[in-house]
Design a protein around this nucleic acid. Structure first.
Lengths: 225, 225
DNA sequence: GCTATGGTTCAGATAAGTTTGAGTATAGTG
DNA sequence: CACTATACTCAAACTTATCTGAACCATAGC
C-alpha cells in the first residue's frame, strides 16, 4: 500500500514514517504543503495522511485541490488538539477521517487500514474469497481457517490482489504500490514473488487463485469454494 | 485500435507510445507538426493524441486543417500546465477532449477509451449485443455474463468488430487497425484469428456472431438474444 | 561478527500466443 | 457442372512472456 504523509514537524514525521513502513506501507513523505500537493497530483496513492497546519500551503487547500482534480484516494487528516473547526472543514473539503494529535500509532494504523479497505469497497476487516479468508487486522491469510505462513511482503502483495479481486493488476501497478518510488523497471521480482506465493497459498494446486493474464498482469479470481 | 501520437519531446513520446502499445493500441508517432498532419491526412486513425506546442506546425493548426478536410477521428489534446487558452482554442478547432501535462498514463488511457467508444456511437463502457457483453473497461467479452477467455489480440479484433456492428469490415481494414503500418499484405493471420475467435466466442455454434462476406470482409451482426 | 531470514537477480526452461504455409472446403460464375 | 477465387483448418515453427531454481545480497537478531 502506497501512502503519502504530509507533516511539517520533523520529530513527528520521521518516526511516524518509519512506523508506517514497519507496518508494511510504502511511504512517501512531504514536509510542506506545496510538495505534498504536488506528490498527490503526480502519483497514485492508496491513502494520504495530511496535517492541517502546514507551511506554504494549508492542508485544507491541498485536499480541496486534489478533490477538484478527481484525485480520489482516501485522506486522513491530522489536527492539533482542540482545533475542532479544522476537523470539520477538513472533512468538508473531502477528507475521510481525522485524528487529533497527539495520537497512538496503533490508532492511526487501524484507521488507515479501515480507509484503504473501504476504498476498495470492503466494509469488513475480514474478507472472504472462496476457501480463503483475508484478515486485514492481523495481516494474515487463512486457507480453510488455517493460517498460511506468509512474510509481510508476500502478505502485502496478496492483500493488494484480494482487495482488487477480479481486476487485472499489472506488474507495474504492483511495483508502484509495493515499493518506494524508484524501482528497477525490468526486474522480475514480482514474478518470483508470485511464484512463491502461489506455492504457499495453494500448496495442493487445486484452487489456482492467482491467474496470469499474459501481457496484462495478474488477477485474484473470485473463488467458488 | 490505431492511434496517432504527435509529440515533439522524445522523453514523453517514446515511453507514452510503448505504454499505449501495451494497452493494445497500434501506435504511429510523429515528432513534429508537419509529419503529424501528413499522417493524419494519409491514414485512417481511430483516435489521435496531439500536443499543442509543436515545431514547424502548431497543434491547433493541424486540427483545424484536418477538420476542414473532413478527417473526423476523435482528437485528444495535450496542453502544458496553465495554458488554458490553448485548451479552449484546441477544443474550438475541433478537438474532442484535452489533458493537461503532466498526466497519468492511466487517465489518458481512460479518456482515449471513452473517445474511441463514443466515436462509434456508444456512450456506455459496456456494450450489449444479444447474448454478448463487451466490457471495454476490463477488456473482456462475456457470453451470458460468463467471461470468454480471449487473448489481448483476439479481444482487440472482437472489440473492433463489435464497435462496428453490422458494418462489413474488410481484412485490410482489420490489419491496418490492428497492426503497425507495415505488415505483410498476403498473410492469412486474420483468417486464422477469426477462426480461433469463432470457436472461443461461440463454442456451441448456435449464435454465429461473425458473418463472412465473401470478397468483402467480416461483420458482427446484431444479435437477438 | 555470525547466522538465519527474507528479498533480489540471473539464466535457462516452459508455456502461451502468434504467424506461416500447405492442404481442404466452399461459394460464386460461366 | 466444373473452374476459380476466396475462405477455412491444422499443425508446425517461431516469438516472447512468464516461471523456476539456484545463487547472491541485505538486514536483523543473537
Amino acid at each position: 500500500m502506497k501512502l503519502l504523509l504530509i507533516e511539517d514537524e520533523k520529530d513527528l514525521r520521521e518516526p511516524l514514517a518509519s512506523y508506517l513502513k514497519s507496518q508494511g506501507y510504502s511511504v512517501d513523505t512531504a514536509a510542506d504543503g506545496r510538495e505534498g500537493h504536488y506528490r498527490g497530483m503526480e502519483y497514485n496513492y492508496d491513502v494520504a495522511v495530511v496535517d492541517i497546519g502546514l507551511p506554504i500551503m494549508d492542508g485544507i487547500e491541498i485536499i480541496t485541490q486534489w478533490r477538484r482534480s478527481d484525485r480520489n484516494f482516501p485522506i486522513l487528516i491530522l489536527t492539533a488538539r482542540g482545533n475542532w473547526q479544522d476537523k470539520v472543514s477538513g472533512l468538508g473539503a473531502g477528507g475521510d477521517d481525522y485524528l487529533v494529535k497527539p495520537f497512538h500509532n496503533e490508532e492511526l494504523n487501524a484507521r488507515l487500514q479501515a480507509l484503504t479497505r473501504r476504498a476498495c469497497g470492503h466494509a469488513k476487516a475480514e474478507i472472504e474469497t472462496g476457501p480463503y479468508q483475508l484478515d486485514t487486522l492481523q495481516k494474515r491469510l487463512n486457507l480453510h481457517h488455517q493460517m498460511v505462513e506468509l512474510t509481510q511482503f508476500e502478505y502485502n502483495l496478496v492483500q493488494y490482489l484480494i482487495l482488487h479481486t477480479d481486476k487485472v493488476v499489472s506488474k507495474t501497478e504492483l511495483t508502484e504500490h509495493l515499493y518506494e518510488q524508484d524501482f528497477d523497471k525490468d526486474s522480475n521480482v514480482i514474478e518470483v514473488l508470485i511464484g512463491r506465493i502461489r506455492k504457499k497459498v495453494d500448496p495442493t494446486g487445486q484452487y489456482k487463485p492467482i491467474i496470469t493474464q499474459r501481457g496484462q498482469g495478474y488477477l485474484w479470481r473470485t473463488q467458488y469454494a
